[in-house]
């Protein structure tokens, strides 16, 4: 792909994150309208049956753990009122598959092996069906060097990334997320590209992903994310003349609301 193609890809990722963020903002603004808007609608319908039903449901419904009862004085609650300022903690465990750290035109490829990943995330609802999540994930992976029809051990590398992402619930239990952040990658100092990149191991990163919550009663879900970060070309000696993009597919389970 040409340089312009790569710039387009980065721009597309950024635009997605911005789109998700702006949608979240719009929803948040809508949710902050007075509840009287909803009340007016109900009043206009002037349905005694609706009020009776609401009272009956309210009487039988037990608030879930951690859920605030927003029904006051006979008004109809906004069903998606944002719960700002109540961050929750999420835990992640899974694995990652990655594309090559470097492909040398001489036929050599340096590639990370499949690696376990653990992570922690602080999430805060910022709007209806919209959450801001700050994620920290880390993994240690073996490095596989291939060339000349053989493969050999290239040592191991640490990968840690911090991402701020907007998560948007599309349909019940399924949420999409997009985020930007930094990836910190450090590997053996005698293997390219690490021998040239260990001195400045922070790299811009982008992420797109989805989470599927298994059930409404337990905050356990499957998570998949496609991460990408720029790597290479930090020094003149680096055989990678221009940075390229390393992609990672991170799959696992997430626990926490």
């Amino acid at each position: 792909m040409s340089r312009y193609g790569r710039y387009a890809a980065i721009a597309a990722s950024g635009l997605l994150a911005l789109a998700l963020a702006s949608t979240a903002g719009a929803r948040s603004a809508a949710a902050q309208r007075p509840d009287s808007v909803a009340t007016d609608s109900v009043s206009a319908a002037d349905s005694a049956q609706l009020r009776r039903d609401a009272e009956r449901i309210r009487a039988h419904r037990r608030p879930r753990a951690g859920e605030r009862d927003t029904v006051r004085g006979g008004t109809t609650p906004s069903p998606e009122r944002p719960r700002l300022g109540r961050p929750t903690l999420r835990l992640f465990a899974g694995g990652a598959l990655s594309t090559a750290y470097v492909r040398d035109d001489n036929g050599t490829t340096v590639r990370p092996a499949a690696a376990p990943v653990i992570g922690v995330e602080v999430a805060s609802v910022v709007g209806p069906r919209t959450t801001l999540a700050v994620t920290l994930r880390t993994s240690r992976t073996g490095i596989d060097v291939r060339g000349d029809g053989r493969s050999w051990d290239g040592g191991s590398a640490w990968h840690t990334d911090a991402t701020a992402a907007i998560e948007r619930t599309l349909v019940p239990r399924l949420a999409l997320r997009g985020g930007l952040g930094l990836a910190w990658v450090r590997g053996p100092s005698d293997v390219a590209p690490f021998r040239f990149n260990n001195s400045s191991p922070f790299r811009p990163a982008a992420e797109l992903g989805a989470t599927y919550t298994f059930s409404r009663s337990r905050p356990l879900g499957a998570s998949v994310a496609l991460q990408a970060y720029r790597y290479g070309a930090t020094t003149l000696a680096d055989p990678i003349r221009e940075p390229g993009t390393v992609k990672r597919l991170v799959i696992g389970v997430r626990y926490g609301r």
């Binding site: 792909m1 193609g5 790569r6 387009a8 890809a9 597309a12 990722s13 635009l15 997605l16 789109a19 998700l20 949608t23 594309t99 090559a100 750290y101 470097v102 492909r103 040398d104 035109d105 001489n106 948007r168 599309l170 349909v171 999409l176 997009g178 390219a192 590209p193 982008a206 797109l208 989805a210 496609l226 990408a228 790597y231 290479g232 070309a233 055989p239 990678i240 003349r241 221009e242 940075p243 390229g244 993009t245 390393v246 992609k247």
Partner: peptide, 28 residues
């Protein structure tokens, strides 16, 4: 409609990310 649009945008962005070049070294 909004969900569909966002899904398509996410797919397009994912495809764009996946299509980016790996770091490549020139043969010397």
């Amino acid at each position: 409609a909004g969900a569909l649009t966002r899904s398509l945008a996410a797919l397009a962005a994912a495809a764009a990310l996946a299509a980016c070049d790996s770091p490549t070294a020139d043969e010397q």
